[in-house]
Amino acid sequence: MDIGIKEIEHIANLSRITLTVEEKNTFAKQLTNILGYIEKLNELDTDEVQPMAYATSLKNVFREDKLKSSFSRQEILELSPSSTNGFFKVPKVIE
């Protein structure tokens, strides 16, 4: 399968990354190449195989419902590129 410019634009949008024309061309070529390589997985019949999503056999890991002190708001907001009146500030969001 090929990844063309249209597919690149679609996944760039999903990824929230603006791409230049040059990047689109390069990535389309490179990702098509990689996709070609990973097609080799289809050599394997995996119908009867369980997927392995975790690298650990742990299960049922919980913490108790206990309060811990939160971080200071000032410390948190200082990390932000833009904040005002105790809020994080972003360009206007329209629903």
Partner: peptide, 19 residues
């Protein structure tokens, strides 16, 4: 407390004080 951390779930506090 919240689902994944110990911050309070209390309603109506000053913004960003339970983070």
């Amino acid at each position: 407390s919240k689902l994944f951390c110990g911050c309070s779930t209390k309603f109506g506090s000053e913004p960003n004080t339970q983070t």
